[in-house]
């Protein structure tokens, strides 16, 4: 599977200059044609840092309140990366619909992922570049004469 260049995707969502997370989420809503809700969720998170739950007509991104703002934003961007890839049919959800049905009455679900998964690498790079676009104090614009 060939993923789109991360830089182009970020450009599509953020435009040329800097932007805010709200604006980026608004643009992604238009692409995936579903509302996306960001919900701070108390509870036992263990080593999970954020979670995307997709329903018929909306998507929830849940994240724990205990982390710092920068880290929460990074984890949300990571999940937005997954949503983008899924909206383009470039990656399926980590737990498919048929498997989800199997877990209907389960009291716990754990799964194994292949290490160094290309999807994970793509969304992590996406999160990094998105945060760069929405950071207040980012790297200065490129100056070939002085950089």
């Amino acid at each position: 599977m060939v993923f789109p260049p991360v830089e182009e995707t970020v450009l599509e969502l953020c435009g040329d200059g800097t932007t805010s997370m709200t604006e980026a989420v608004e643009r992604l809503k238009l692409i995936c044609e579903k509302p996306i809700h960001l919900i701070e969720q108390e509870g036992e998170w263990g080593t999970l840092t954020a979670l995307t739950v997709e329903y018929e007509d909306y998507i929830n991104i849940l994240f724990p309140p205990r982390h710092s703002l920068q880290y929460k934003v990074h984890c949300i961007y990571h999940e937005l990366g997954h949503i983008f890839l899924e909206s383009q049919n470039l990656a399926s959800p980590q737990i498919s619909q048929s498997l989800l049905k199997e877990t209907k009455n389960a009291i716990s679900v754990s799964c194994r992922h292949i290490e160094d998964d290309p999807v994970e690498r793509w969304v992590e790079d996406f999160a990094f570049r998105m945060s760069k676009k929405t950071r207040v104090n980012s790297s200065p614009a490129l100056d070939p004469f002085l950089c």
């Binding site: 080593t47 840092t49 982390h67 920068q70 880290y71 990074h74 990094f128 760069k132 790297s139």
Partner: peptide, 22 residues
């Protein structure tokens, strides 16, 4: 990385470390 990007990567890496080590 640029200084700012290097700092950001370090921060995320350290938070990841905190989370995985609980």
């Amino acid at each position: 990385e640029t200084l700012e990007d290097g700092i950001y990567k370090s921060l995320i890496r350290l938070h990841n470390h905190e989370v995985t080590k609980l």
